[in-house]
């Protein structure tokens, strides 16, 4: 199910999931919770262009109808991306906001001011011929509100834009 550039599934972790969903979750999100507990939105491309390490990205957002939320970057091996800062994610508590409660996260391989989510090479040497993106983003909404449970395809989500690429 698509919401802008983000993708989610209502049957993740559920006993009602079909065989294909179960297989996909087993490979890329084993031990996921059901949507009543957490909703997962994944983003692998912006306007059809896969997330790349040679580009800078900007995520903009605000507050969401959930108990709490986090945004995490993962390598194509589905594990956290090594970085000197040990910064793998931002959540609703540790993110710096403006006076209106809005926030921006910068994603790049090089240090940025403000909320910087570093990305880089994964630990596992993934065959990039078989992976059409360099990293992905996972938005977790814990105890999501009805807006997300009823209308996951149109509920408000952070917007991701690609800035420049080298």
């Amino acid at each position: 199910m698509r919401n802008g550039d983000w993708y989610t599934s209502k049957s993740v972790g559920s006993i009602h999931a079909d065989a294909t969903t179960r297989a996909m979750i087993a490979i890329s999100g084993l031990l996921a919770s059901t949507q009543q507990d957490s909703m997962y939105y994944t983003l692998r491309s912006v306007s059809g262009r896969p997330l790349r390490l040679n580009c800078r990205y900007r995520i903009e957002g605000g507050e969401y109808e959930a108990n709490w939320w986090s945004i995490t970057a993962y390598g194509p091996d589905y594990f956290l991306i090594p970085n000197q800062e040990k910064r793998y994610s931002y959540n609703n508590e540790n993110i710096a906001r403006d006076d209106n409660g809005q926030w921006v996260i910068h994603i790049s391989t090089h240090k940025e001011t403000g909320n910087w989510l570093p990305v880089g090479a994964s630990v596992t040497d993934v065959d990039h011929q078989n992976s059409n993106y360099d990293f992905d983003l996972l938005l977790r909404l814990y105890t999501p509100g009805d807006t997300y449970l009823q209308n996951p395809e149109s509920a408000p989500l952070p917007t991701v834009t690609r800035e420049e690429c080298s």
Partner: peptide, 15 residues
């Protein structure tokens, strides 16, 4: 504590 060495299951959450 979850970091890049946490590899017992995919997509561990650092939060």
């Amino acid at each position: 504590r979850i970091d890049e060495t946490s590899r017992w299951v995919v997509r561990p959450s650092p939060d």
